[in-house]
């Protein structure tokens, strides 16, 4: 499948869900989609197109939270990034980890660092932060402030 065919097929299949498509360069395409369609589109890319899931990156951009799901189609060297915007106050999105193992860890990571809820995640435990980290404090949010009064920011020694 060549690049043009793939993109045409992709846009015609999901035209109702695609809000905007940015053809940034030969190897990068950013697709803005509705949050409800992420499971369908993600599954399609992973299972039918045979794309490899790179990773997902979430960014806090008040008043929204943005998640980018990066998929790479290796045969034609094309990186497709699916972009969804969530409400910052109540960020919720359907989990892809139910069907694809590769999403498991990254969704856990995003949920603790940015406070995003993944609905239906099979294993929503903590991944990175320690057990005594307070609930609801998300270090990668823009308004994160140090909560630990014992922390020492001098050089020691």
């Amino acid at each position: 499948m060549i690049r043009q065919e793939l993109l045409l097929d992709f846009t015609s299949r999901f035209h109702a869900d695609i809000l905007d498509l940015e053809d940034k360069s030969n190897t990068r395409v950013y697709v803005n989609i509705t949050p409800e369609s992420i499971v369908r589109i993600g599954n399609y890319l992973f299972r039918n197109v045979g794309a490899r899931f790179n990773i997902a990156t979430a960014t806090d951009m008040p008043p929204k939270i943005e998640i980018l799901y990066h998929f790479i189609v290796e045969d034609i060297n094309l990186l497709i990034s699916l972009r969804v915007f969530l409400d910052r106050e109540k960020p919720e999105i359907e989990s892809l980890a139910k069907e694809i193992e590769a999403f498991n860890w990254i969704e856990r990571e995003m949920s603790e660092l940015l406070g995003i809820t993944f609905i239906g995640h099979p294993d929503p435990r903590r991944l990175l932060l320690s057990d005594n980290w307070p609930e609801g404090v998300c270090p990668l949010r823009q308004d994160y402030e140090e909560w630990d009064i014992t922390a020492d920011r001098t050089r020691g020694v």
Binding site: Y144, D148, T150, A151, D152, R153, R155, G156, V157
Partner: peptide, 19 residues
């Protein structure tokens, strides 16, 4: 381990070793 070097301000490294 001496002074936390570049990680001094990290949210997950609160206290230096010698404290």
């Amino acid at each position: 381990a001496g002074s936390r070097g570049i990680f001094k301000d990290s949210y997950n490294c609160p206290v230096p070793l010698d404290k």
